[in-house]
Every structure is written in C-alpha cells, then in structure tokens.
C-alpha cells in the first residue's frame, strides 16, 4: 500500500458523485458602497467521491463549511470553483433542464423539520409534489406511492390529509424524508437531519435511515456534528476543518485510529463526553485556541494555530489530502503514527 498521488480512494469504477477541489466563497461587502472587501471562504477545495449505495458522513464543528458543502452538492448554490460530476455528467454549473434532472436524482433533507415543510400543504401534497414536479407516473400511481412512502417512513396513512403543523418534530422529519424519497433519488443529502430532534427520536430516525438505505440502495451524504450519530449511519467519514477535509476514511478505522491531529482532538472530546452518550462538536474542545475565522484562514495548514505538532512547514505549505493506506486519507505533514498510543482505544 504505497501512497499514491490520486486524491480519491479506490472506489467502484464509476462513482455516483465525484467532487473535486470544490470551492465556495461568499463576498463580504462594505456597509456603504457595497464594495467587495473580502471573502468568506466556506469551502476551500474539497474532494471526495461516493459509490452507489454508499453512505458518507461529513463531520466538523459549526462554521466549518459542512452545510455549505451540502447545499453546493445539491446545487442550491453554484460553486465558485472546482467541479461536481454526478453519474458521469458534469453538473457544476448545470441550469434549466439539466439542473432539474439533477434535482430528481439528488434530494435533500434539511436540519429543521419545523422550517422545512410548507405549513400550508398537507402531508399528501408534500409527498406528492416531487413526483408532480418531475412528472413521474399517473395521478393514481402517485397517490399509491404517497401511501407506500407513508408506510415506509412510519407515518399513519390516516393522517395523510393533515398539515405538518399538527405533527411532532420526529414525525415531521419522517414526512421530510418521505418527500425526499418520492422521486426515487440516487443520492440523499442529509444536512444534520436529527440534530433538531430529541435523543430518543434521533435513534428512531437513524434506524429508519439505515433501514431505507438497505432496502432502496440509495447513497447518503450525512452531515453532522455528533460523531456518535454519524458513525451509526455512515460507511465512511470525512472530517472537515475550516472549509477543508482533513481526514477521510472508513468509519471504524478513522474512529479507532485517527491520523490527523484534529480528528484526534475530536475523539479526545468524545472520550471526555462518553458518559453523555452523545458527542457534540459544538461543545468546547480541549485543544487550545479559537477556531480561526473563514474570512482570514491561516496560511498553510488550517489547523496549525491549534495543533500541538505544528512546525514551520505547516505554516508555509498547505498539506493535501493523501492516501496513507488502510483506505484512509489524511491532510497533514506529520500524520500521527499508528503506534501513537494516545489515539488508540
């Protein structure tokens, strides 16, 4: 297993989604003249790919750009750099009919089910709409699929003509999932789908997601800040820090033997909080220093300002995400050794 220059892991011949050097920055305007005085670099060159049926988790602290990454992948925004190739088609700048075709195959589940469902539509209308929009099936077929989807996500068919306001958070998220599944997408992007829910409900939704993936063979991109949640759903996990992926690998390997100092920091936070049963990256981390602002990221490695192992090289050269064997990639000049006791369980 020699290091390769290829930035992606060996995956199936044709990945479902291949994202390369994705970049998303937002201009900052001055108050008076609206001149561009700087940029918020939310996503600074992210590359990964997903095979059909695979589930990839993206974890990171709040503000690391993971939600922007999700919105860019589903093309709610157009990336300012890099490329997105879905099913062999470049959709980086897709518009019009191409974009609508992409929307059919890539659906999104949003974080807050209290915001993401139109309060003026019934459950039936909400679940049917994607099929109407993409002209899938006859009216009868659509109606029967609505009922099927209700069964699949565990919503009582008798409540189908109610509005989402009469449902609880967990039930609303089930409705949102049914809506996203309606056009039979190939990829589901889940942006923190359980973080607005109670812990007991979280487990139910996670089980549902696992069950649906096993049954329908869809791919997931699961954005989250809770490692315990993400590992329950994902085959692979990517750790994001300040707009970049710093480590990417098989869930269990990555959690057992992190190679990036940042991942290690996250996991030591986990150990400190293990009694809680939940690992929340929004809590203060034991590493020193503040998270640098995406307005003005540090030179070289983004993590060097908080990293205990940083050297001059880290300040001058930005480390690339490199394959280091065991299906793991890490972006660090000095990845932790596998024998490093502190990172082993």
């Amino acid at each position: 297993m020699t290091p390769t220059t290829d930035n992606t892991l060996p995956v199936a011949a044709t990945p479902l989604l291949k994202v390369e050097d994705l970049e998303m920055k937002f201009p900052l305007h001055s108050a008076l003249l609206r001149r561009t005085i700087g940029w918020i670099q939310a996503v600074r060159g992210v590359s990964f790919s997903i095979s059909p049926g695979e589930s990839l988790g993206i974890v990171g602290e709040s503000g690391c750009g993971k939600s922007t990454l999700a919105e860019t992948v589903v093309r709610l925004t157009t990336p300012t750099g890099g490329s997105i190739v879905f099913n062999g088609r470049d959709v980086t700048a897709a518009a019009g009919g191409d974009l609508r075709r992409l929307r059919r195959d890539v659906q999104m589940v949003f974080q807050d089910p209290f915001q993401s469902l139109n309060p003026r539509m019934t459950v039936r209308q909400l679940i049917r709409e994607p099929m109407q929009v993409h002209r899938i099936g006859t009216v009868e077929e659509q109606q029967s699929r609505v009922a099927e989807l209700c069964d699949a996500v565990g919503i009582d068919r008798r409540l189908i003509d109610r509005r989402p306001t009469t449902f609880s958070g967990g039930q609303r998220q089930r409705i949102a999932i049914a809506r996203a599944l309606a056009p039979k997408p190939k990829l589901l992007v889940l942006d923190e789908p359980v973080s607005a829910l109670d812990t007991s409900v979280q487990a139910q939704i996670l089980n549902l997601l696992n069950e649906l993936r096993a049954r329908m063979g869809i791919s997931y991109i699961f954005i989250g800040h809770d490692l315990a949640v993400v590992r329950q759903v994902c085959d692979r996990i990517g750790v994001m820090y300040l707009g970049k992926l710093v480590e990417l690998g098989e869930s269990e390997t990555l959690l057992e033997a992190p190679r990036h100092p940042y991942t290690q920091t996250l996991l030591s936070a986990v150990k400190a909080l293990e009694a809680d049963g939940s690992i929340d990256l929004t809590e203060n981390l034991p590493s020193s220093g503040e998270v640098p602002s995406p307005k003005n990221p540090p030179s070289g490695c983004g993590f060097r300002t908080r990293c205990a192992y940083a050297t001059d090289e880290c300040a001058s050269d930005s480390p690339e995400l490199l394959d280091i064997g065991s299906l793991q990639e890490v972006a660090c000049h000095f990845p932790l050794k596998l024998t490093d006791g502190s990172s082993r369980k």
Binding site: V74, L76, R100, R103, R104, Q107, M108, F110, D112, F114, Q115, S116, L117, N118, P119, E129, P130, V133, H134, A176, R179, A180, P183
Partner: peptide
C-alpha cells in the same frame, strides 16, 4: 425560509 429552499431542492420551477 426552509420550506422554500426545500421546494427549490426538490426541483420545483
């Protein structure tokens, strides 16, 4: 609003 962004992501014109 969440539901409008949701509608866009679903593919509504």
């Amino acid at each position: 609003a969440g539901y409008v962004r949701n509608a866009v992501s679903v593919g509504c014109t």
